[in-house]
Design a protein around this nucleic acid. Structure first.
Lengths: 337, 337
DNA sequence: TATTTTTGCACAAACGATTGCGCTATCTAA
DNA sequence: TTAGATAGCGCAATCGTTTGTGCAAAAATA
């Protein structure tokens, strides 16, 4: 049976007002007698009543809900991030609505619209596409923080990783190991993280006088893409001695392509990838990779968002967290010959 | 600026009622003149108004929201399931609220309570714990479907995998390959899937006259557990020639433990695991595993839930989907000696 | 022209909570 | 005994929609 303030009120002979006050801990403020308060609490317990969050939100103009927009929750990278954000939100008594844009701008727009309609108190998004306008629009009506991906020349707060430095260091590691023929398989060309990584790769090569040797191929963060591009790379006359995969998925594709051949890792070809994933430790050989602090990113984005929500801050914070190289045996020095 | 029916109504000189009717496509039913309808639509466009879902839900007693309770969204198995469910819900114009119970019954209870307070239209849950009472309570007030895990002797609908058969077949595969010393590393002992898997394992051994040889160790679905138990198994006098890991995480731990030794896979020890995961194909050797139809489970659970929500059905459907063995080179025949 | 029918829209009451204000008892003080 | 203070609680408006009903004006019919 559905209970409301009114139904309980009628039953125990007090007004809905009184129950509401007792439940929200305003017993003293409104001088409800201990006896009455007790009576209310007992009955509320008995029929285990919980106030309708809808009615509360409507009245209080506050939903205790945040929206989380992700390109695909099935990607462990985003799943981990979601996990951190959800748990951070829960600690603050907020509920999280996750919407999956499936890397589609139309979905994304619709997702944002329903979040607004639901009057979420704030939004965290890893946007897809490269047009910030709708997000800027949204930011006018609700606190918004971007994670992972963001927009250049836009004043929307974000928390991301230092993709440039991460890629730079990974490439440097290869160069320092004597590799001169280092290929880079990129993902979605428009996305800011991808661009930053490619730039890091190129700049590192330049530093070691290998600027002319840059080979950037690929076009999406998918296994497919990694597979195909690796196939092509391996069949080049001037075969690369090292491959830098700009994502976990690309790496998986590359591994598959390499396994189709007789090349060995790392004897014939060294490998590095972006993104951390437990399974990388369990491959043979374990993979060297550039690890992003995913959980910290999620956690920081939440913190930032809640600061905006509680209006503890109104500055435009744009953060880039440091990446870490996890060095395993998928890289060995290249010896001329 | 915040728009409401009233604010727009005032501006264009009609009543809120009329706007509401136009927006919900009841122009004809309530004989709104085309001219007025047009005027409304134009203005609504201009200030891109979207009705408050809160007010709508309150009034219509329907939220177009489902709740999804998962033990941990960071686990790819559940992330994939969540992905399927979210997308299925979206196709029906429903939004999904995900709550992460972190395998904690207190969290879970609280999560369910907030879902009820938010008046979700239905709930899908992969429950933790082994006490069905609260779920049975909940089912009285809102449609509920369990996925992956369920409760025995309970009339709550669920969609799960045929864990028994999956484990039986995997064990059988090992037995048929001549292994007589097959260890099984289990996960959370109370969970129904775990129990079913262990039973499948035992029954398969019996079928091949190996009932006496059963070795069941372990206690949780974690990397740690897989690691420790494998360490112990490998140091036994009577070392098993094959290990059946009852989850992906357990397998990872086992791999790590094996790498600590000089044993080779599959020459010295054959491996099979439960759960599918892309990376299993990229290990060396690729892993044989029992794959559960995760997405199909998610999709079916959604379908089932929506049938209940739309009251197209009220029978208690309890489904077990078939698993598939994905056979790779982590198993070789055991040759005596 | 008088009556009925139809058209086109608005009124007001919900939905279930919260909250400013005010009302009635009881109590205190003079 | 009476005025003022205080304790204890309820009234009614409000949040932003939806929807049954009602009512005037226009159109159709007689």
């Amino acid at each position: 049976m559905k209970e409301t303030l009114a139904s309980i009120a009628a039953r125990i002979g007090v007004s809905a007002t009184t129950i509401s006050r007792v439940l929200s801990g305003k017993t003293e403020k409104y001088r409800i007698s201990p006896a009455t308060a007790e009576r209310v609490l007992v009955e509320v317990q008995k029929c285990n009543y919980t106030p309708s969050a809808l009615a509360q939100s409507l009245r209080k103009n506050k939903t205790y809900t945040i929206g989380l927009v992700l390109p695909t929750i099935a990607n462990p990278y985003f799943a981990d991030m979601a996990s951190a954000i959800i748990s951070e939100a829960r600690d603050k008594n907020y509920t999280t609505i996750i919407v999956d844009s499936m890397e589609d701008e139309v979905n994304q727009r619709q997702a944002l619209t329903t979040l607004l309609a639901r009057k979420v108190d704030g939004i965290i998004a890893a946007p897809c596409g490269s047009d910030p306008r709708f997000f800027e629009e949204i930011r006018k009506s609700v606190p918004l923080v971007l994670v992972d991906r963001y927009f250049e020349n836009s004043r929307i707060p974000y928390v991301s990783a230092n993709n440039y430095r991460g890629a730079f260091e990974a490439t440097e590691l290869l160069a320092q190991n004597g590799h001169r023929n280092i290929a880079c398989i990129q993902g979605d060309i428009d996305s800011v993280p991808n661009k930053a990584r490619v730039k890091g790769y190129r700049d590192a090569l330049k530093k070691y006088g290998l600027g002319e040797n840059a080979i950037v191929v690929g076009e999406s963060f998918s296994i497919q893409n990694g597979y195909l591009e690796t196939k092509l790379l391996l069949s080049r006359a001037q075969r690369p001695t090292a491959i830098f995969a700009l994502s976990f998925t690309i790496l998986l594709g590359a591994l598959k392509a390499i396994r189709d051949t007789s090349f060995r890792i790392p004897e014939d070809i060294s490998l590095v990838s972006f993104d951390n994933h437990v399974s990388l430790d369990y491959m043979i050989p374990p993979m060297t990779r550039v690890s992003q602090p995913v959980e910290e990113m999620g956690r920081l984005a939440s913190k930032l968002l809640f600061d905006y929500i509680d209006s503890k801050s109104d500055s435009i914070t744009q953060l880039e967290l440091a990446t870490t190289i996890i060095s395993k045996s998928s890289i060995i020095p290249f010896i001329e010959g």
